[in-house]
């Protein structure tokens, strides 16, 4: 599992789920905290479609932490200020890098639940999709109409 997928599942998960996974790791090893969880900023870089250039829309508060398990380092960066969850995520990352993490099936289960939740929410939004009914049988093609206007 790549880091983006791993961190996406963990970031979306309830902090108690993440804490439970971290607690499993702590049963067998003692991570060294290299960087205590603390707040910092991330600047958000966007690409606009008109001239295809880059700009910064603003910043977001993130919490970061770094740990080490038997020489394997792990980090976490998470939007918001949940220090405990960030530390737990760093521990999980270090365990993954050390090859000690055994919770992949749990991660996949969480991912399925998260995706289902997002898709249910998406269904709510899609219910507001407009079905246009033309009142003119000879309505012109939209794009062509716009060009003539």
């Amino acid at each position: 599992m790549d880091k983006k997928r791993l961190t996406k599942i963990l970031a979306r998960a309830d902090r108690r789920e993440v804490a439970a996974m971290s607690a499993e790791i702590l049963k067998t090893c003692r991570p060294v905290i290299l960087k205590e969880p603390g707040k910092t900023l991330a600047m958000i870089k966007m690409r606009e479609p008109v001239k295809q250039s880059l700009f910064y829309i603003g910043e977001v508060i993130v919490c970061e932490a770094s740990v080490e398990i038997d020489g394997a380092r792990g980090i976490a960066v998470l939007m918001g200020d949940d220090a405990e969850k960030t530390l737990d995520m760093a521990i999980i990352d270090a365990a993954v890098n050390k090859g000690l993490f055994e919770g992949e099936s749990k991660l996949l289960e969480l991912e399925r639940e998260q995706n289902a939740e997002i898709m249910r929410e998406n269904a709510l939004f899609l219910k507001t999709m407009v079905n246009f009914e033309s009142m003119d049988g000879e309505a012109p093609n939209d794009l062509n109409a716009f060009k003539k206007a």
């Binding site: 900023l41 991330a42 600047m43 690409r47 910043e59 508060i61």
Partner: peptide, 23 residues
């Protein structure tokens, strides 16, 4: 408050074309 924090990160380019649309 923001001025009291360091800025340690810049995000990757945000893909707004792939955003999860709500409207």
């Amino acid at each position: 408050y923001r001025s009291t924090l360091t800025r340690n990160y810049y995000t990757n380019e945000v893909d707004t074309e792939g955003m999860r649309i709500v409207r």
